[in-house]
Design a protein around this nucleic acid. Structure first.
Lengths: 357, 357
DNA sequence: GAAACGAAATGAGACGTCTCATTTCGTTTC
DNA sequence: GAAACGAAATGAGACGTCTCATTTCGTTTC
């Protein structure tokens, strides 16, 4: 059994209260007593029992983060940022994985609550929703900051990228390269951020005076097979293959690339491509893939800041924070070739690709 | 404040002891009392305070895992396996990141210890070592299972891949394709597993009757710049470029590929390549990269099994377990072209590459 | 040197839970 | 119906820490 303060007190020849005062840094301790206690700590290799302390102080100095799938590289990057901010402020961060299941997510939150964490960072799972009452009760009296994906029906603090604007930037880039037939493939549209990104697509087209074609909106999934099916369907549209494809997240984007490669199409030869998120080892992909990059570290970092503000009694009553961070576009080979459409000769548009060089 | 058992007792009209008996599942409770308590739990939305329970029972049902860098995809996969095994047995898993620093690793372990986790999975940080006494004291009275990287000076339970055998398999594969001048690039050789993989290299060459050339052993690093320097140096050897390169881990392997691409060399055109570990989105790399794949999920899963065996009073005294799991080789385009060496004509070997159609 | 004062030290009590010895209760047996 | 018995319920005490009211101590002041 690890040593306790009582044993320290005995060894140092002072009372247990004095030991506690030394450890918690009270000033009303004489140098002589402090030295004796510190010596005892050294001798017994004492480490405070944080569990007992938490029980008494009702503080755990611990935050929790629940992510949908820790094996998707996007999330560990956010965790890194969150952990950094937490540590700087003297908090621990417990990482849990909901495996993209709302049920499991509820379990994880209940667990963190039972562990008496002081607040939670939540990247909501996709899939089936809990009833609103259920999810409200899960987080009642517990500060929660949502990251990346925002629950439609919950009014909470949140940190994410300016999804609409970021998508618009990506699409504008493609339009700037001369594309007019730009398909978009999304993740599940039950996710709020996916909806926003789709909105950004519409917005960009509108600004560019290009009509939105329903046959170019491929509303998608995170599943490889499903994405493959969607791509196949999309390619079959009567007016032919689009010249460019934009994916609203890295998982779907990678799945789409795989599917298209599988049927013999490659970028940039057969289609121009850009995607949300950095595909891992992106600078190594041949060809390089144009990406809309989210500031993952900052997202985690900022989210902890917002959460701690909510936890702090002084500032807990502030208005809901909705942090929107800007994304960055990195243009690479998959999209940086200008694309020209010849003036219509007959009903079928004729496309040609001209390579600069 | 969340409701307590005392409040439950008041509402249900029974004593606090009975409430506790219901919650902890004792049998000596009448159905009538049990129903009343359960009803009270429902009404108050009671959740047990795990902190208070832990203080009393001296059990936390929590394990910790410390990884060097959660953003390296290899580690989250291990975490997934560990979390799975832990959950099945009713344990929670706290994930911490040592950021490859031994000092920070020590802090993380101290933290977990103060949190009174029941055991630790440790993937040791590289870099500067702590003194043996220090690291021994860190883990005294606390079950620890080391994963992947084994500390040379600590006798602990461990789970890792058969590093030597796995490397031998990779090298044999290259030899089987006709290569005789095979360079190996490693991570820091302070890591035990890197040493073992290098040993596998020597062993494979020995069995194949090929002499080991010091100029083909590029002892390396995880840092991109350092790896680039090492590759450059390696290429300058008097007897010319090796025909094949084997990397002993994914991080170094990816860095090496980048460096070589940067100087205009590509695989498989200019050199044959294989590496430990799956490079993320590997099936998407062009060309596909031959990999020695570690059973990451299983490693995490097995490690928790070993750890729990050590925690369980019944089996805590068993002999040290040294689990060695087999790796798998997946041959892809970067290495699956047979390579022929023409019989020596003069002192300088003439190489030629024949591509099977 | 007694009184006054502030600093230092003490020790009781509590955080929410579980355990276990003790008490209460209901049923069975003769 | 009293005695015996086992099941059910109770309540005191403890886990290790912190807090805070109280006490002790040492120094200063007149």
């Amino acid at each position: 059994m690890p040593p306790t303060q009582k044993e320290l007190a005995k060894l140092a020849g002072v009372s247990a209260g004095t030991v506690s005062n030394v450890i918690s840094g009270s000033t009303n301790v004489s140098d002589r007593s402090r030295q004796k206690v510190l010596e005892a700590i050294r001798v017994l290799n004492y480490q405070p029992n944080l569990i007992a302390r938490s029980l008494k102080t009702n503080r755990t100095n611990t935050l929790g983060i629940v992510v949908p799938d820790i094996t998707i590289p996007f999330f560990p990057k956010i965790i890194r940022g969150a952990e950094s901010a937490a540590r700087e402020r003297g908090y621990f961060l417990i990482v849990l994985d909901s495996e993209s299941s709302h049920t499991r997510e509820a379990d994880m939150i209940a667990l963190l609550r039972a562990q008496r964490v002081e607040g939670i960072l939540l990247i909501p799972a996709g899939g089936e929703r809990l009833s609103p009452e259920r999810s409200a009760s899960l987080t009642s009296n517990l500060p929660v900051v949502c990251l990346d994906r925002l629950p439609a029906d919950l009014d909470v603090d949140s940190v994410c990228v300016d999804d609409c604007g970021a998508a618009e930037m990506g699409i504008s880039h493609l339009m700037g390269m001369g594309h007019r037939e730009i398909a978009i493939i999304t993740g599940p549209l039950t996710l709020h951020n996916e909806q926003e990104r789709l909105r950004g697509y519409r917005q960009a087209l509108k600004k560019g005076g290009i009509p939105v074609q329903p046959s170019l909106i491929w509303s998608g999934s995170f599943e490889q097979d499903e994405v493959a099916r969607i791509c196949q369907n999309g390619l079959l549209r009567p007016s032919g293959r689009p010249s460019a494809l934009f994916a609203t997240n890295g998982v779907t984007g990678l799945a789409a690339l795989r599917s298209l490669y599988a049927v013999g199409l490659s970028t940039p030869r057969d289609f121009t491509f850009a995607t949300f998120d950095e595909l891992t080892a992106e600078d190594f992909f041949k060809p390089g893939i144009t990406s809309v990059i989210q500031p993952t570290f900052d997202m985690g970092y900022r989210a902890v800041e917002v959460l701690l503000k909510r936890i702090d009694k002084e500032t807990a009553d502030g208005p809901r924070e909705k942090v929107r961070l800007p994304a960055t576009l990195i243009a690479r080979e998959s999209s940086n070739t200008p694309f020209y459409v010849e003036p219509k000769k007959n009903s079928a548009a004729i496309r040609k690709t001209a390579r600069a060089k």
